Amino acid sequence: MSTANRSNTNSSPFLLTGIPGLEALHVWLSIPFCFTYIISLLGNSTVLLAVRLEKSLHEPMYYFISMLAVIDLTFSTAVVPKMLGIFWLDLKDIGFEACFVQMFFIHTFTAVESGVLLAMSFDRYIAICKPLRYPTILTNSRTVQIGLLALARGAGVMAPLMHLLTSLPYCKTRVIPHSYCEHMAVVELACADPSVSNLYSLTVATLLVGTDSVFITFSYGMILRSVMRLPSQKARLKALRTCGSHISVILVFYIGGLLSMYLQMFSFGLAPHVQVLVADFYLTVPPMLNPLIYGIKMKQIQEGIFKLLGQLAGLTVSQADKDRSDAERGR
């Protein structure tokens, strides 16, 4: 195929089917996705506001939690609005460039979240195992630098993959049997050998997830050993409670991601709609759960949120009193 023909073909939009085989249930299936999106927006926005407005939360650990909240909001907004457009309005078309932009955001921020979870494990390791050196090792500015490094790493490894994928000719059917531009579902539409891009994506995913998970496991192993040596049971419980919320988020992220990836690579005889639903819930449920996990397990976040809600309630009452006074003066 000539370069011109490839360009013309690739300019055509793709067609997302939603959840193949369950098209008749799209309206009903949209309800849990809409619910998770609303909770994700409210929960993560509340966490961000609490950390921003409560000065006692201006510490590295809470900055990392804020980074997770931003990542979760990006995940949800990159996927759910388009998904609901398919379910509610049958808006299945997605432009060629828009499809790969969506894919770039999804996979980039997956890598970024893995990097932030690694940084959080390092933060807890320093705080528990080397508490006297914590203020000098993890300053606020260094925390921001770590977050930017995680973002640069995610974007850096995804940019070559996007170049490889967009350079492929897509001259087969434009129908993507998925709710979003999932990498492997899009690659299957190429009419050229995608082995280079497949090898690159598999290598990068294995190295990133493998390396990060090994260091995270090592960090929490060292933390557990140090915690068990603490003389006070109260101190041990406090340390375990703080780390417990982190470990919960890590398990949800890695187990869900691996399950979604392997079901896309190997069907295991499952129906296509099962694979799509698993992938959809992986991108929508964790962003809803993360702020709930932190809100339930971390006392400082709870206090910050309650203080924020109290301030908002106070402002509402003050405004109501002002309006009442103005009305009385008007009489």
Rank of each mutant, 00 (worst) to 15 (best):
residue 185 A to F: 11
residue 88 W to D: 00
residue 245 S to F: 02
residue 215 F to Q: 10
residue 180 Y to S: 06
residue 282 Y to G: 02
residue 74 T to A: 13
residue 214 V to I: 14
residue 32 P to N: 06
residue 268 F to H: 05
residue 32 P to D: 01
residue 13 P to S: 06
residue 313 A to N: 12
residue 30 S to A: 09
residue 294 Y to M: 11
residue 311 Q to N: 14
residue 1 M to Y: 15
residue 95 G to Q: 02
residue 255 I to C: 09
residue 245 S to E: 09
residue 190 A to S: 14
residue 97 E to A: 14
residue 269 G to H: 05
residue 136 T to I: 13
residue 195 S to E: 11
residue 45 S to P: 05
residue 130 K to N: 10
residue 138 L to D: 03
residue 222 M to W: 09
residue 252 V to T: 07
residue 151 L to Q: 09
residue 269 G to Q: 08
residue 285 V to F: 06
residue 196 V to H: 12
residue 260 S to F: 04
residue 164 L to H: 06
residue 315 L to D: 13
residue 91 L to K: 15
residue 97 E to N: 11
residue 302 Q to Y: 08
residue 185 A to D: 05
residue 147 G to E: 05
residue 35 F to G: 04
residue 26 H to W: 01
residue 41 L to I: 12
residue 104 F to S: 08
residue 232 S to G: 05
residue 111 A to L: 12
residue 81 P to N: 07
residue 127 A to T: 08
residue 300 Q to T: 09
residue 229 R to K: 15
residue 288 M to D: 06
residue 153 R to H: 15
residue 23 E to K: 00
residue 88 W to L: 06
residue 27 V to K: 06
residue 44 N to E: 08
residue 68 L to D: 11
residue 6 R to A: 11
residue 91 L to M: 09
residue 46 T to Q: 07
residue 146 I to T: 03
residue 182 E to D: 08
residue 249 V to L: 06
residue 203 T to C: 09
residue 32 P to A: 03
residue 187 V to Y: 11
residue 262 Y to C: 09
residue 183 H to L: 15
residue 53 L to C: 15
residue 207 L to G: 10
residue 126 I to P: 10
residue 144 V to I: 14
residue 293 I to H: 07
residue 249 V to W: 04
residue 89 L to C: 12
residue 150 A to N: 11
residue 48 L to Y: 06
residue 246 H to R: 05
residue 22 L to Y: 01
residue 284 T to R: 01
residue 167 S to E: 13
